[in-house]
Write a protein that binds this DNA or RNA. Structure first.
Length: 293
DNA sequence: TCTATTTGACCTCG
DNA sequence: CGAGGTCAAATAGA
């Protein structure tokens, strides 16, 4: 986080971001409680998510404004630049490298109890490759949606164990799921909304904040309830966040590493996830980047 | 027998 | 030409 210091504006904004992230985390907890409640109110959940949207949106704006005064500063505007990408289907019939693919989501998640990988994210993944990466201690695993053939679902993800902490996994999502989840297998983790369950884990994983030191940390998480066997042997259910978020929009900027992770974490928990969760109508969530348009 | 994983080869990009 | 991403045959497990 040192990189943020030395920039007076950025430092001030960072404090705001920290406080707002604390607030977001609190809201997520409330949301989780409501989701577990037998008489959960969808309206209340929507209200909570709306506030989460607003806070994350503003935080992203702070970060962007501090570092890129000349760049579009609102997440909505930055995200909208991706619209040209979204209408281009993910290329699957080529071995061409996808380094330039824009609509990706990068999250860092932990493996509970020394598991081989992050927990299930509600989607079925099929491993199709593994590669040793130059400079990385651990190989990178490549997964694609199980429904790729049957439903032409373009979603893929890459899972790589973090060098610094083997208990953490960097998961990069490419493409969006176009498959219908009803057809796939789904562990009954949450009778009300299993998808929400995994999402919340992801949310919390991505929003760990060290408020005392004013440091943001989206890595040190230990979700206690998501110990699921993964990687080889299981159905490959590895990742946390199945929700493609255009973190690449920010990755294109020369953000400092930690700060970039903050933005990535923020975007990873924003609108699309909730859209997935509650099937919001398109008009809901003013100011929320609409990644799927 | 079907499905998922493993792994070496192949392809493309920078 | 090296690195990263994907393919596809071989293999394993249910």
């Amino acid at each position: 986080m040192e990189s943020v210091e030395g920039n007076g504006t950025g430092r001030g904004n960072l404090q705001l971001v920290v406080s707002e992230l604390c607030r977001v985390q609190e809201l997520v907890r409330q949301l989780e409680l409501h989701l577990h409640a037998p008489d959960a109110s969808i309206d209340l959940c929507r209200a909570l998510t709306a506030e989460i949207f607003a806070l994350t949106d503003r935080s992203i704006g702070f970060v962007a404004a501090a570092h890129f005064p000349d760049a579009p500063t609102t997440p909505s505007s930055t995200s909208s630049s991706l619209s040209g990408v979204s209408d281009q289907p993910f290329r699957t019939n080529t071995k061409k490298r996808k380094a330039t693919a824009r609509w990706t989501s990068q999250v860092r998640v932990s493996a509970a109890g020394g598991a081989e990988g992050p927990g299930d994210d509600g989607h079925s993944w099929r491993k199709y490759g593994q590669k040793d990466i130059l400079g990385a201690k651990h190989p990178r695993a490549y997964y694609r949606c199980t429904h790729r053939n049957s439903q032409a679902c373009p979603a893929t993800k890459q899972v790589q164990r973090a060098d610094q902490d083997p208990a953490l996994f960097d998961v990069v999502y490419h493409g969006q799921h176009t498959c219908r989840p009803t057809g796939g297998r789904r562990p009954p983790t949450n009778q009300h909304n299993p998808h929400a369950e995994s999402l919340l884990q992801s949310l919390r994983a991505g929003l760990t904040v060290d408020a005392e030191h004013g440091a943001l940390n989206n890595t040190s998480v230990s979700p206690p309830s998501m110990a699921s066997p993964v990687a080889s042997g299981s159905n490959g259910g590895l990742a946390m966040s199945p929700y493609p978020v255009p973190a690449g929009a920010y990755a294109e900027w020369p953000l400092d590493g930690d700060l970039q992770e903050v933005v990535s974490a923020l975007t990873a928990v924003s609108a699309p996830s909730m859209d997935c969760l509650f099937e919001f109508d398109p008009t809901f969530g003013v100011g929320v980047p609409n990644f799927f348009m």
